[in-house]
Computed example of a mutant assay.
Amino acid sequence: MMKLLKLVFRNLIGNGLKTWLNVFVLSIAFVLIIFMQALLQGWDRQAMADTVKWEIAGGQYWNAKYDPFDPFTLDSAVSELPKQFARQYETGQIEPVLIVSGTIYPSGRSMPVLMKGIRPGQKLLELPTTLLMNPTDSTDIPAIIGSNMAHQAGLTENDIVTLRWRDANGTFEAQDIRIAGVFKTFVPTVDAGQIWLPLDLLQKMTLNPDKATLLIKSKEVNEAPVAGWNFKDVKELTKTLRETLRSKAVGQSIFYVIFLLLALLAIFDTQTLSIFYRQREIGTFVALGMTKKEVVRLFTLEGTMNAILAIVLGAVYGIPLFIYFAVNGIPMPSGTSDFGVAISDKIYPAFPPKLIVGTILFIILVTAWVSYLPARKIVKMNPADAIRGKI
């Protein structure tokens, strides 16, 4: 086996620049596959973590009539806090959220919004709800909004804007609110088109005392069936996000597949030409006692060695790049969260061992297969004709 490997290595070196061009192109495909997959995995982890911290916590109980895609259900999708959660509510492990449709009028124009009531000072979510604590000497209705919402509405901190809503009796009401704070988040589902208000004030404004649309629970609270409420765990609540990321992964895979196909095509052509020009050498090998299967193995190993050299070369310049981006992240352009997917201002690629080992094995196996395809012709060669060069 060692003699066979030495012969393979000698033949590769003898090919000169052709070998190193194949190795370089294949190394680019190798590095690109790992980097793009690591970028998507890092994005997936960050998006999931941010969504859980800002919106989900340990899961949510939805009112049985609540449908986030049907705003007409909001009026009827309210219920009182279940008595079995009274203790968890007092300790802050259950946070009710009341959702009501409304309209704001910034700069004389109308803009539909979702009014969301949450307790000031809650600890389950990253929302800065301490800003909703209204001073005792103030009659303002405080509200907080996300930075994207503030940009769309043209609002800044301490701005006054008119808010209109319809209460439980169907009567339209309107009142000015004060923007107590603008928070920055990369989760658009708590930012776009939403205004966060103190829960008790929103309940009073809409004539829904002690009622909520959904309940957010901490991870310490065990899931339990509740009449009139449907529990949604983290996996179910992030299903849309995971599907979106999966669809983007399919789209991005096209680019590194193109690079890989170019590299494999170069190896295939190299092996085909090598077999054509080395007919006498092949015939000599067979005449000296090598079986045709051993000669096929020789040429297959030559092609596969391109992948091994490409992995080594890719590691030389790829590892420093991977370390740099894993530590410093990749800056994302501003406004990327407007696409409806949680995207941080920096994405830190994740390089789990499973990804690297899997990619290495994939490159080696595919290269070996591509190298074996032209080598199969050797089995059909006649050694005598090969030595005379008549094939």
Rank of each mutant, 00 (worst) to 15 (best):
M1D: 11
K6G: 15
G14S: 08
L21D: 03
I28L: 15
A29F: 00
A47T: 08
G58P: 09
G58M: 04
G59D: 10
Y61E: 04
A64K: 10
K65F: 13
D67W: 01
F69R: 14
F69V: 10
D70K: 12
T73C: 01
D75R: 14
V78S: 11
E80C: 00
R87K: 12
Q88G: 00
Q88S: 08
E90Y: 01
G92T: 06
R109G: 01
M111Q: 11
P112A: 11
L124E: 03
E126G: 14
M133W: 00
I141F: 12
S147T: 15
G154P: 01
N158H: 12
L163S: 04
N169K: 15
Q175V: 06
R178S: 07
A180C: 13
A180E: 06
V182L: 12
V182A: 05
P188A: 03
P188C: 04
P198V: 06
Q203V: 02
Q203E: 08
M205I: 14
L207E: 14
L215R: 02
K239R: 13
T240S: 14
L241S: 06
R246V: 06
G251Q: 08
F255I: 10
A263P: 03
T270C: 04
F276G: 00
E281G: 05
G283C: 07
T291K: 13
K293C: 06
K293T: 09
K293S: 12
E294R: 15
V296C: 05
L298F: 13
T300C: 08
L309D: 03
L309W: 13
G314L: 02
F322M: 14
F322K: 10
P333E: 15
S344F: 11
Y348F: 15
A350I: 00
F351V: 05
P353S: 08
L365H: 02
L365C: 05
L365N: 01
A368M: 07
Y372M: 10
A375C: 01
A375Y: 05
I378P: 00
I378R: 02
M381A: 03
A386V: 03
R388S: 07
I391L: 15
